[in-house]
Amino acid sequence: MTPAATTFHTPHPVAQRRSTTESPLVRRLLIGVALAFLSVFLLVPLVAVFSQAFAKGIGFYFHTLSDPNAWSAIKLTLYAAAIAVPLNCVFGVAAAWAIAKFDFRGKNVLLTLIDLPFSVSPVISGLIYVLVFGAQGWLGHYRDAEQPWLPWLQNWLNEHNFKIIFAVPGIVLATIFVTFPFVARELIPLMQAQGRSEEEAARVLGASGWQTFWRVTLPNIKWGLLYGVILCNARAMGEFGAVSVVSGKIRGETNTIPLHIEALYDDLNIAGAFAVASLLAFLALITLALKTWVEYQHARQNQTKMFP
């Protein structure tokens, strides 16, 4: 490290680095603080879920999961997600197409409105459907209305005793609401950044609208779309607050997985609650892994586009 020695070697990077990075001590301290914070708030809870799930042994774990009420909760959760995710996916693609590929007035207002469900408390997300479809709500009033504007609808509703609140349709609706923006907000900035020149070129070369979408747009947005679907699905299966308002919590009938966890927890069956919770925690881990993988693929696709 003598001055004489350095002059004969390639310029030493140390002197240059010192001005734009921190000393090793500060660096280690910051890494330590960050890791300690993340350990307490993320790692410990994650480890706790799985260790509590198996606290009473593997036999009890599978006993809890094979309970008919647990099964019905799993089926209902999958059912609600299977309706909510594709619907919001179609909406997301349509909204992104309209917003990214065309110019029109009020675009910013529309963007804000699409994001609205994210800023509403889950409890209120459930409440609004109770107000529309509940016994005291619009539809409830409509059934008892003396002069309905569509008499056949009133008759139909009364004949079939059509229930939405405290039944499965309400759960599906609440799930759609809370996952509403996921795909759209992932696709809109992506498609805006990609512009419309590729699609326009395809059109000029004679492709139909559908061909343009399937062969040009979809390959460009596939990773963004998958990313949105993954996040949408995670939220759809894990939603608690909104679903808890509209479900009525009838065990074996209108309980989703998160509601079943709450029921077990309230019964002071803590190990049982964590056994079911471990399913959702496992889903969360898969979601994170998939998300990281998609981000990686997306970055790679962008790179090859820039440097072919």
Binding site: L42, Q52, G238, F240, L259, F274, L288
Partner: peptide, 16 residues
């Protein structure tokens, strides 16, 4: 792992 609070359902986070 930073995204865990986004991915972990709130009820699971709550009881944990």
């Amino acid at each position: 792992l930073v995204d865990l609070p986004f991915a972990l359902p709130t009820a699971v986070a709550g009881i944990t």
